[in-house]
Design a protein around this nucleic acid. Structure first.
Lengths: 355, 355
DNA sequence: CTGTTAGCGCGTTCAC
DNA sequence: GTGAACGCGCTAACAG
């Protein structure tokens, strides 16, 4: 590999001093240099193929222009759009992102954060946090700028970008109720994740407010947001035999698993039971049946999180006292597809008679 | 944020010299230090929370322990497993991966490679290359270690990890032929990508070898590996009205689009036409109908690519002359699901009569 | 406007 | 076995 060309090389080629080259190449200091010289420098550095050495820059300025993005598993279709959004936003500010997968293990999370810290990340975007995440707490105390995406931590001192979970659940229930459903089951997500918890709480709340059947036996909790858990939970619901005409799942993967479990029991969706998901992940419209779900803009969330973090970074170098943490809430919308349908007239009638 | 702890801090705390600390912390030089002192150093550095400064290390040693991984778009479900495999392998060797998205634009690719080079990546894993990629060529000439995954470049001098495309196509055609299909259409992938090209060539070859209908009108070329292109191509095939009972698609997304297009025309899969995909991407088993496809182990490919690259890095620092580029070919297997079925007896009979 | 100087944190020669 | 000195490539303060 050809040796790297440095500032010194460019300077030597032009017979000027290194700092002249340095200044000519930095837009913020170029005005200090005679225009012609500056031009020559730019030309020469291009000709020689000069690339600034990021390590030297970091060592000198203590800035790495690097942000860590931590997800449970990039293989889970929810996270690529988040990362992509963050990466695009960061790139625009000439930052780069380093992606870490925790596999939802706190040990791995700590290990990854360690190597990222050694690499000198200036901040962290965390899509993997549990509601009370010890690692996050520790880092926050050390003053490392952080923003959580999609999920939140209980500590309101940590900035976040999330979606309006309550509104999403409200729309799902409103939709199902308008189709005549009264006995609505639910597969709730893990309760140590803010998304699982707030969706479940909104479910309980709106179920009561809308006068739907309030039966604890209609809810089962998933141990993770996976299709396998969706299958397991749906089977448990069916085994309980409480009778339900609709099933609200805390995310799309759970819904996919649930539909598979129904089918195995010769129940079809939506004819026998309407099923809803949450997230509108890629391909949700290509499944059978196409999933009625809540669309959350993951790309936008990642983008917003990165923008927020960069803002925080800029502020920090400005004033001394930290501003209070910002919390951005993104709107959601419902997409109605084939997995939900109206109850047959007779059932609707019966439902109404009861009410 | 608390100021970073450096070697100097640790040395000061113990009243020894910086270089003593440096040596005690490096496994390779620890033997030069009195065991007790070494222990003290280790203890103190842990207590103070010392983290080696990666920038300083890089500047000194000219090694960044950083690898760039370049994909077209991490949002495409094919790539997360590849990245994950690479990342896991790299981490094990205390390397880190930096992910870049090209959006299949050569301009973006060049820009990303530039910033990665500035960051001092020691090598590149490229999942995004076109068959004759100018950027790759340039880098190869400069001697930057590189390996392509999944796809290849024409230049055999570039190491690669890929799958046995010919075998995959052979199995698909054998499977369809055994079900009685004789007129088999194809949606071929982009011909500037090695995967698209080799799958197409294998298709032509085995179609002839197996005595299947050889009709140029049965093949249409997609401009990209997307479901939208799948729809477009399927519509074109139907418009041509050549009559076919099976449709071989160059990847799963194309197949998904094709099935949607068929359905819109009131044709159902597999009753009216059997459809096959390629890749066995996540959720391929959850679609309707579940996709018969070729399983390629993307995670393993990414892992192998990273291992290979690290080997190359180690060799390079050893001997002077470069070893010839290695090319790893991973086996594939077929997974038969609901999207293919046997022709009704009558059609099979007619097919045989013709032969 | 430009050159000089210093030092970021670390590994690696040398001496001792 | 340990300390001293140097320099990786760069930016920033200070001179001129």
């Amino acid at each position: 590999m050809r040796k790297r060309v440095t500032l010194k090389d460019v300077a030597a080629a032009l017979g000027v001093h290194v700092s002249t080259v340095s200044r000519a190449l930095d837009p913020k200091t170029r005005h200090l240099i005679t225009p012609e010289v500056a031009e020559q420098v730019v030309a020469a550095s291009e000709r020689l193929g000069y690339r600034p050495n990021a390590a030297a820059y970091s060592l000198k300025t203590n800035r790495t222009r690097t942000i860590g993005v931590i997800v449970p598993d990039i293989t889970n279709p929810v996270f690529p759009p988040i990362f992509r959004g963050a990466d695009d936003a960061l790139m625009r500010h000439s930052y780069i992102a380093i992606l870490g997968n925790t596999d939802s293990s706190l040990r791995r999370e700590a290990a990854i954060v360690d190597t990222l810290l050694a690499r000198g990340v200036e901040g962290l975007i965390m899509a993997s946090v549990t509601a009370n995440d010890s690692v996050v707490g520790r880092l926050a105390q050390e003053g490392l700028p952080m923003v959580t995406v999609n999920r939140r931590v209980d500590d309101a001192g940590i900035a976040s970008v999330a979606h309006d979970e309550r509104e999403g659940v409200r729309r799902i229930l409103t939709h199902l109720a308008s189709l005549g459903h009264r006995r609505i089951a639910a597969i709730a997500g893990p309760q140590d994740l803010s998304t699982g918890r707030s969706r479940h709480q909104a479910f309980l709340e709106y179920r009561a407010a809308m006068g739907l059947a309030e039966d604890d036996g209609l809810v089962v909790f998933a141990g993770g947001f996976t299709d396998a858990e969706g299958e397991r939970c749906a089977e448990e619901l069916l085994a309980r035999d409480r009778g339900f005409t609709a099933l609200v799942c805390a995310n799309d993967l759970l819904a996919i698993g649930a539909i598979a479990a129904l089918r195995r029991r010769r129940l079809s969706c939506p004819e026998d039971v309407s099923v809803t998901g949450y997230n509108d992940m890629p391909l949700a419209d290509r499944l059978f049946p196409p999933l009625t779900t809540i669309r959350v803009e993951q790309y936008r969330a990642g983008h917003a999180a990165a923008d927020l973090l960069i803002e925080m970074l800029a502020e920090r170098s400005g004033s001394a006292e930290p501003a209070p943490a910002r919390h951005i809430v993104l709107p959601v919308e419902m997409v109605i597809r084939g997995s939900t349908q109206a109850l047959p007239a007779v059932s609707v009638a019966r439902g109404r008679a009861k009410a």
